[in-house]
Amino acid sequence: MTASRPATPAQRKIKEAIDARDALATALTKAGIQLPAMDIRTPWAEESRYALVHLGLCSAPVAHASRK
């Protein structure tokens, strides 16, 4: 079964950001890096002109631990 194409431009932009987030997470995992949080954010609630991959916030100890 194939996934249907998102109907609106905003939905397509969110789908694009989700795909980018997933690809980035896969690449980081292969490199041995794990971020504490990764999600998708849109700057406007009504209609998303674009979506952002939010890489989350982490403490300094967590950031240093991810380098190991």
Rank of each mutant, 00 (worst) to 15 (best):
A25K: 14
R49H: 09
A63M: 11
T26E: 15
P9A: 03
H54S: 07
T2C: 01
A25M: 14
D19F: 07
I14M: 02
Q11H: 03
M38R: 07
I18M: 13
S66C: 07
K30C: 09
R5P: 00
M1G: 10
E47D: 09
T8A: 05
S59V: 03
T8F: 02
K15V: 03
E47Y: 09
L24T: 13
T29Q: 12
Y50G: 12
K30E: 15
E47C: 08
L52V: 15
T26S: 13
S59F: 01
I14P: 03
A25P: 00
A7G: 13
D19C: 11
V62K: 05
M38F: 01
A23F: 02
S48T: 12
V62E: 04
A45I: 09
T2H: 06
A37G: 05
S4M: 12
Y50F: 14
M38A: 04
Y50K: 09
I14K: 09
K15M: 05
I18V: 14
V53R: 12
R21E: 06
T29R: 14
S4E: 13
K68L: 09
C58E: 05
T29G: 06
Q34N: 11
P6N: 12
R21F: 04
A23M: 09
R67M: 12
S59L: 05
H54Q: 07
R67F: 05
R12W: 02
C58L: 10
L57E: 05
I33D: 00
I18N: 11
